[in-house]
Design a protein around this nucleic acid. Structure first.
Length: 736
DNA sequence: TTACTATGGATTTTT
DNA sequence: TCCATAGTAA
């Protein structure tokens, strides 16, 4: 085995070698954290630790896959290391022992769509107005509780006399009851129930403690309290826990991630060693400095400052456009320019705050014939037709899954409407049967005589499929389902572009199933359902295709591109209105972290674009440029130059550009909030010649103390006299 | 039961 | 603007 620390910097080396006891690795963006993690695993194995005694937890399947691949590349024993996501780890643990909690190991996993359907049903049954208590809101609240490890019972107690909370806790209680009846767990339950299983069964917990002697967890800043608890349970005996994360990249607070987990690590794990990875291997100096100065405006963070040996690089482009259409046109023209100059489409990424913003850009790309891919939006497995087919499979696997049955009982149309479904539900509830059992006894259901045949037919169809599922491969089973139920025929007879697209999607599902059968070791229905339930769209992102990539800032975390556009860089969009209006100051800080994530995706070139007016919800709105733009040092920013006027179309598009240029407004840039640096060393004195990245060579006229920093006045032959803050300009202002 | 029309709501989403 | 859903007519 090669030297595992070769080529690593001192901090990285330390992180690899420090195997015993709790360690927190604060890994800045682009600091080589995956390398450190994989080498650390290999080093552990080299030291004699058994691969199966090592656990590495990630948040995404993609991260897990990548880590596994890289570990296997450096050590032949890598395949026995337990590398997986929180959720799939928990599924594995629960499949084994969930009987202790009164579920069976055949449980199915509900995605948020399934959960919401169930909530909706419950609200109806409990006669709670979904106007005052929207299923989404209730679901969110319940999820919040679960993330905080608060059970329905505990929640009811804290609710006390608060009517709203009491109502929600009632729904929560019923929701859990129904999940159990359906033998189903939602995403939050996967973790929650595992924690519960461990807490109530010390023998099981002990088994895993003895198994996972070394635990590593990636993206630690994104853990919620429930996940934190799980980690604590597993690691508290041997205390060989290595958490890797970056508090500045905590952008999932709204999903229950608790930033305190990383901020308080040393408090929670006594004698923890903290290692900072601050050298960045990704971005230019300018991009990195911009990221540093922006994030410094946040109060709650660990001190950390990225630096790099990379080149200084070009200035950041801040471009104000007249409208969202022109913004899209500008982005398209820059990409065309870049490609003409030898770049590739895949070198460009467009990041935006919300998915709706992709539309205008897509339209423009289609017109300009720029190949692009959209990440996010409606996920493949969330599409109606895919969910329909998957629900058939779910019903075959888990007959107690009422939500799945109700979804497909009238898809395609079988003349079984909501009224009938309701009656069956009530009958099932009264007689203590599952929905499916009730259908089997349809003739006993009162006031339903005329429909009982249809119900029986449906039950027959399902039983028939269930029998077939014993022998058929999954891809064949899906084929059988969509042809015998008439699902495909129904779509074909519609003969619209949309219907054809749905058929394509189903075919795609069949080929995915086919691929699954041929690549997984465990190719049964259970494994397939699990795979589908636990994958995300981002998992399938690969950089092989030469296309521009469009995605939200959130989805971009962990990725990198030579050229990045952050579009819609406007107040109200980024930061979002909600965060601005929120009484929680942390909300804007999280947006700023998101901005930091966005900036640090860029390797070479970064653009901020913003429009004076844009269409939103069918109305034209105007926003000021984002406050974050003011936080980027002015001398890192290049004003946008008017595009090539030879191109007529472009000329027309940009003709109003000159009238809108907030960058010209001096007041626009203030540095008031940036804390003064402690020690500044200058490599020039008054009278020296210096080179500034934007204005060229000039002469230092004056150096005056300003707080803990120095204000440097430089006279340029062309640009005239300019003032710079020494600390901020350390990479862009140098002696010649 | 189904098929059409009105209405309202619209961040971010690793699983 | 665009979507999902609730309500109504047939």
């Amino acid at each position: 085995m090669a030297d595992l620390t070769a080529g690593l910097n001192p901090a990285q080396k330390k992180a690899v070698l420090k195997t015993e006891g709790p360690v927190l690795i604060l890994a800045g963006a682009g600091s080589g954290k995956t390398t450190v993690l994989t080498h650390r695993i290999a080093y552990l194995i080299e030291q004699g630790v058994k691969p199966y005694n090592i656990m590495a937890i990630t948040f995404t399947n993609k991260a897990a896959r990548e880590m596994k691949e890289r570990v296997e590349k450096i050590t032949p024993f890598g395949k026995d290391v337990w590398v997986s996501t929180f959720h799939s780890s928990c599924v594995r643990i629960l499949r084994r022992d969930i009987e202790r909690l009164g579920y069976t190991s055949q449980f199915t996993i509900y995605d948020s769509d399934d959960s919401e359907r169930l909530i909706k049903e419950i609200l109806k049954e409990l006669n709670i107005s979904d106007k005052d208590f929207s299923p989404k809101m209730v679901m969110g609240k319940i999820s919040e509780q679960k993330n905080e490890l608060i059970s329905a019972k505990a929640f009811l107690e804290t609710a006390e006399e608060d009517f709203r909370l009491k109502t929600i806790s009632k729904v929560y209680t019923e929701y859990q009851k129904r999940l159990k009846q359906n033998n189903a767990l939602d995403f939050d339950d996967l973790i929650f129930k595992t924690v519960q299983l461990f807490a109530q069964n010390p023998d099981i917990l002990d088994k895993y403690r003895e198994k996972f002697l070394y635990i590593m967890i990636d993206e630690y800043q994104d853990t919620n309290s429930c996940q934190y608890n799980l980690i604590r349970q597993l690691s508290s005996k041997y205390r060989n826990l290595c958490a890797v994360g970056d508090d500045d990249q905590s952008i999932y607070g709204w999903r229950g991630a608790n930033i305190r987990n990383i901020l308080d690590f040393e408090k929670d794990f006594k004698n923890a060693e903290v290692i900072k990875l601050e050298q960045n291997y990704r971005s230019t100096k300018v991009i990195l400095d911009a990221a540093n100065t922006v994030i410094k405006n946040n109060i709650s963070r660990k001190s950390k400052e990225l630096w790099t040996e990379n080149e200084t690089g070009g200035l950041i482009n801040a471009v104000g456009l007249e409208s969202d259409f022109e913004e899209a046109a500008f982005i398209a023209s820059e990409i065309e320019k870049g490609v003409k100059n030898g770049g590739e489409y895949k070198d460009f990424a467009i990041l935006y705050r919300n998915n709706a913003m992709s539309r205008v850009i897509e339209d423009r790309f289609v017109r300009s014939s720029i190949p692009y891919r959209l990440l996010g939006g409606v996920p493949f497995y969330g599409r109606k037709e895919i969910k329909d087919v998957m629900c058939y499979l779910k019903v075959l696997y888990n007959p107690s899954d009422d939500i799945a049955i109700k979804r497909i009982i009238n898809v395609p149309k079988r003349g079984i409407g909501t009224a009938t479904i309701e009656k069956v539900s009530i009958f099932a509830e009264d007689s203590g049967m599952s929905f499916f059992e009730a259908i089997l006894n349809a003739e006993d259901i009162p006031e339903i005589k005329s429909r009982s045949k249809k119900l029986k037919d449906f039950a027959g169809v399902i039983s028939n499929f269930r029998e077939a599922s014993e022998e058929l491969k999954i891809s064949e089973l899906i084929e059988k389902i969509i042809s015998e139920t008439g699902y495909r025929d129904e779509l074909e007879s519609e003969n619209t572009a949309e219907a054809l697209n749905r058929i394509d999607n189903i075919n795609e599902l069949i080929s995915k199933a086919f691929e699954f059968e041929n690549t997984s070791e465990r190719a049964d229905l259970s494994a397939f359902l699990e795979e589908v339930a636990l994958v995300a769209d981002i998992d399938s992102y690969s950089e092989d295709d030469d296309t521009v990539v469009l995605m939200t800032l959130h989805s971009s975390k962990g990725l990198e591109f030579p050229n990045v556009f952050i579009a819609g860089f406007e107040e109200g969009i980024f930061p979002s209105y909600r965060s601005i209006l929120s009484d929680n100051p942390n909300a804007v800080e999280e947006e700023r972290r998101l901005c930091y994530v966005g900036i640090t995706r860029a390797k070479k070139q970064l653009y901020f674009t913003y429009a004076r007016s844009r269409m939103q919800h069918g109305q034209t709105i105007s926003n000021a440029p984002s406050r974050f733009l003011k936080e980027v040092p002015m001398d890192f920013i290049e004003k946008h130059k008017a595009p090539d006027s030879k191109n007529e179309e472009k000329q027309a598009t940009f003709r109003n550009k000159a009238s809108y240029n907030p960058m010209g407004n001096k007041e626009y840039f203030t540095y008031g909030k940036i804390p003064a640096p402690k020690n500044v060393t200058l490599d020039f004195k008054e009278g020296d010649k210096v080179r500034q990245i934007k204005y060229g060579v000039g002469v230092v006229k004056n150096i005056a103390p300003a707080g803990a920093d120095f204000e440097v006045t430089v006279e340029f032959p062309e640009a005239g006299t300019k003032k710079f803050m020494a600390m901020l300009s350390k990479n862009t202002l140098k002696k010649v």
